[in-house]
Computed example of a mutant assay.
Amino acid sequence: MSERPLLAYKVLTASQMAELEAEGTFAGAPIDLTDGYIHLSTDAQLTETVDKHFSGQDDLHVVAVDLAVLGDAVKWEPSRGGQDFPHVYADLPLNAAVAYGPLERDEDGRVRLPIAS
């Protein structure tokens, strides 16, 4: 079994990002609430996630999540294309966010990862 990443990423709308900052926690986007867990992506999965689920949306934000802070709430489960994705079976606390910022792309169209300041 390959080593799991230490960080995963959540894409939020501007209002969801404001909720996370103001409340200190985020219960999930509508799809998360429907599915019963918060969907995250690894860095290798992030651009495809944005392209598939957020196409045409503006004012998006990317949150880098420290999976160790979430502990046993993180479950790796198969999803798109049989890839394992990190799913969070709890609210996402702001203290698990090690970096966040507006969604930007590099010259190749890949989503840039937020960098902790």
Results as ranks from 00 to 15, higher is better:
31 I>V: 14
31 I>T: 11
31 I>Q: 09
31 I>E: 06
32 D>Y: 03
32 D>Q: 06
32 D>T: 04
32 D>N: 08
32 D>S: 05
32 D>R: 04
33 L>N: 06
33 L>D: 00
33 L>I: 05
33 L>S: 00
33 L>T: 00
34 T>N: 00
34 T>I: 12
34 T>M: 04
35 D>N: 15
35 D>Y: 00
35 D>P: 03
35 D>H: 12
35 D>E: 10
36 G>Y: 02
36 G>K: 12
36 G>N: 06
36 G>D: 07
36 G>F: 08
36 G>H: 09
37 Y>C: 15
37 Y>R: 10
37 Y>I: 03
37 Y>W: 06
37 Y>A: 13
37 Y>G: 12
37 Y>F: 11
37 Y>N: 01
38 I>F: 06
38 I>T: 09
38 I>S: 03
39 H>K: 14
39 H>C: 12
39 H>Y: 13
40 L>K: 03
40 L>P: 08
40 L>G: 10
40 L>V: 06
40 L>D: 09
40 L>T: 10
41 S>P: 07
41 S>F: 07
41 S>V: 03
41 S>K: 07
41 S>Y: 03
41 S>T: 13
41 S>C: 12
42 T>M: 10
42 T>L: 06
42 T>W: 08
42 T>A: 05
42 T>G: 09
43 D>A: 15
43 D>C: 12
43 D>M: 10
43 D>P: 07
43 D>G: 15
44 A>W: 00
44 A>N: 14
44 A>R: 13
44 A>H: 11
44 A>G: 13
44 A>T: 07
45 Q>Y: 01
45 Q>K: 01
45 Q>N: 09
45 Q>S: 08
45 Q>C: 08
45 Q>R: 02
46 L>I: 10
46 L>D: 00
46 L>R: 02
46 L>Y: 06
47 T>E: 11
47 T>F: 01
47 T>C: 13
47 T>W: 03
48 E>I: 00
48 E>C: 03
48 E>R: 09
48 E>D: 08
48 E>G: 13
48 E>Q: 13
49 T>V: 02
49 T>P: 01
49 T>M: 09
49 T>K: 05
50 V>A: 11
50 V>R: 02
51 D>A: 15
51 D>I: 01
51 D>W: 01
52 K>L: 12
52 K>M: 06
52 K>F: 04
53 H>S: 04
53 H>G: 02
53 H>C: 11
53 H>P: 02
54 F>A: 03
54 F>S: 06
54 F>Y: 15
55 S>A: 15
55 S>N: 13
55 S>P: 01
56 G>K: 04
56 G>I: 14
56 G>N: 03
56 G>W: 09
57 Q>R: 14
57 Q>P: 10
57 Q>N: 07
57 Q>G: 00
58 D>R: 14
58 D>V: 09
59 D>S: 15
59 D>E: 15
59 D>G: 13
59 D>Q: 15
59 D>W: 11
59 D>N: 15
60 L>T: 03
60 L>F: 02
61 H>D: 02
61 H>L: 07
61 H>M: 05
61 H>Q: 12
61 H>F: 15
61 H>T: 08
61 H>P: 05
61 H>K: 11
62 V>H: 01
62 V>Y: 06
